[in-house]
Design a protein around this nucleic acid. Sequence first.
RNA 1: UGGGGUGUAGCCAAGAGGUAAGGCAACAGACUUUGACUCUGUCAUCUCAGUGGUUCGAUCCCACUCACCCCAGCCA
Length: 546
Amino acid sequence: MTEINNFIKTIMEKDLEEGRVDYIRTRFPPEPNAYLHIGHARAIVNDFELAKCFGGTTNLRFDDTNPVNEGAQYVDAIIDDLKWLGYTPANVFFGSDYFEKTYERAILLIKKGLAYVDDLTPEQMTEYRGTLTEPGKNSPWRDRSIEENLKLFEEMRAGKYANGEKTLRAKIDMAHPNINMRDPVMYRILHVPHHRQGNKWCIYPMYDFAHPLQDSFEGITHSMCSLEYDNHRILYDWFVEKCEMEHVPHQYEWGRLNITNTIMSKRYLRQLVEGGYVTGYDDPRMPTLVGLRRKGLTPEAIKEFIIYTGLSRINSTTDANDLDNFLREDQKLKATRPMAILNPLKVVIDNYPEGKIEYLDADNNMENPELGKRKIPFGKYLYIEQDDFIEVKPNRKWKRLCLGEEVRLMHAYFIKCESIVKDENGNPIELHCTYDPATKSGSGFEGRKPNGTIHFVEATTAKKAQFNLFEPLVWDETEETKGLDFIERLNKNSWNKVYGFVEESLQDTKPGDHYQFIRQGYYCTDKDSTKDNLIFNRTCSLKSSF
RNA sequence: UGGGGUGUAGCCAAGAGGUAAGGCAACAGACUUUGACUCUGUCAUCUCAGUGGUUCGAUCCCACUCACCCCAGCCA
């Protein structure tokens, strides 16, 4: 795997060299309220890989300081995604496990006169905060005595007040040019049960207060987050200092990853699912990790994509095709390469005996002999791809079949096109060819060079399959598609469903298998559910001409 | 029009005063049991958003300008 290298790594190296830290510890802190997507994967890969570079460790910490919308089902899903990606956290922690310790630091702040209980309503608080260009003004409750604040805060915890009635605020500066410093709320009252704490708490710490303390409790050295938190770093450092944290963590920000034509926000992803536009969070079209997994992406491909695509403080937009490129690269030597014909053109080998079927040896992957061989049938009647034939050779570059020319059928023989049967519109519907037995694959024949190599499927043994993005592979055994009359173009108005002929060997797919179709796309079988999914994705194709 | 962040090729991304890495894509060619893969070559030179300045020398330092992103939740 490619070694990671980016500006955060440089920071870590210097911190180590110059003695600011003597170890590296990172954390991945998802809020358990959504499924992870490719954007999270970038954080995960960087958090883990960067720590790994220096022999450090990474914690998984669920940032569950807001019980609204958070749930245990997401916790399991996130752990599962991490496992799938191949990462094992040094520890699995929950922000809520620190509630008591966090509370103690809040008391400390109150005692130092740096926090106060405020009675302002949410509307008033907005009003008092000022605007981007005008300073805010002090709350009338800002100067309560330490004793009163202590008492009130205890009462807040004890459940004496209703939701929204009071907050605990840091006493910083209502005129600060950075709005985050205008007495940010540290605790709000929420009479909502917590997925782990139950009804133990009715006050919950805000992210800005909880996160730096959590990082400190865990001895995190480098706390990475996205650029939008840049404005919060000043507050992060303020809490670490004023709460007298023994360990001082530091926050670093990087730009978010965007992908062309890909929706990444939780809100829109939820709309896609709830609106029924997709079949669920694991729909192969979703950028979620569970979706990409069903689509056939491998953890290796995702990691390489993330590492190669780099990291900076720019919010970048990467081409969606890159992900497919890395999948192709990853599977190049791992996947077997069966043959399938999507737009069949009938071929009759005139000099081949009627009724004879011979089985030829075919490498599962020409570039990797370790994947073994399989037997593929060859006979008088074949299908080739319509795109692989043109009557008159258009130029020297044309390396496929045309009238009077000879090509190699992959794993089989040279064939030469002798004549064409056309329909009333002049389109070819059947080719008559001859084959040369001397050119059998593996025979070492080198007498002459063919005009390219194309793939094929033996017509009488091939299975008609429905390549469907959303459903398990469907074998179609209906009579009308079995015979040789199946020549119509089935796929013209279909973008998510494609029919085609697949070689026999593909009927024995096993869960976890990946297949790479020559020039067509990918087939993967779901590793866990034993569901088969044929992923026909033209952007995955090995040829740009598709 | 307050504060913060960012501008390097079609897309990512290094370089942090000494004469613009690398990857993807693209293009050209070689090879090939598919044109994929592999290999070779090309691809920023009135060049690093722009304009001035400092300097022997500036993408890098300074000043100003422009563009884009983030911030006014008791969300994270």
